[in-house]
Computed example of a mutant assay.
Amino acid sequence: MTHPTAAITAYWDAAARDFDDEPDHGLRAPETRAAWADLLSRCLPSAPADVLDVGCGTGSLSALLAGAGHRVTGVDLAPRMVEAARAKLAAAGLPGRFLVGDA
């Protein structure tokens, strides 16, 4: 018997490679990135704080959080999304901890 989350994991793993190409996913547009950074800064305590990014995907919001000085742990069901998040933060020189898990 297949685990109930297997199809969900497979779907998001398949989407991981191109996920950041969607307009709001990779936060590549400066206006979009700035809007998210502003929203997060108003919703979170002052840095440094421990922040859990549930369903972190490729780590775009995790990168914003780490860049603002927070200690980020990201969790996602899809291993390829977690790999992408780790790579994204490492490429930016940002700290972050990423785990594969079902939240």
Rank of each mutant, 00 (worst) to 15 (best):
A47I: 10
S46R: 15
A35H: 15
D21N: 11
A84P: 06
G57V: 04
C43D: 04
R86W: 05
L64I: 15
H70D: 04
A66I: 03
R42Q: 15
A84F: 08
D24G: 09
G67D: 09
W12L: 04
L99W: 01
R97A: 12
P48V: 03
T9N: 00
E22P: 01
A7K: 02
P45D: 13
A10K: 12
H3K: 05
L40A: 10
L94I: 03
L27M: 10
R97H: 05
S60F: 08
T5R: 00
A10V: 10
A68T: 11
G93C: 02
A103E: 01
A103F: 13
V54W: 04
P30S: 08
A47T: 08
D102F: 00
A49N: 14
D13S: 12
R71A: 11
G26T: 11
G96I: 09
C43M: 14
F98D: 00
W12M: 03
P79D: 02
G101I: 12
S41D: 14
P95K: 12
A49M: 11
R80P: 01
P48E: 06
D18W: 10
D13T: 09
V72T: 04
H3S: 04
A34T: 14
D20N: 09
G26D: 07
R17N: 03
D50H: 15
D18L: 11
P23N: 06
T5L: 07
G101F: 09
D13R: 12
W36R: 15
V75I: 12
A37N: 07
H25S: 09
T9E: 00
A35E: 15
C43A: 15
R86P: 02
A103Q: 01
L94D: 03
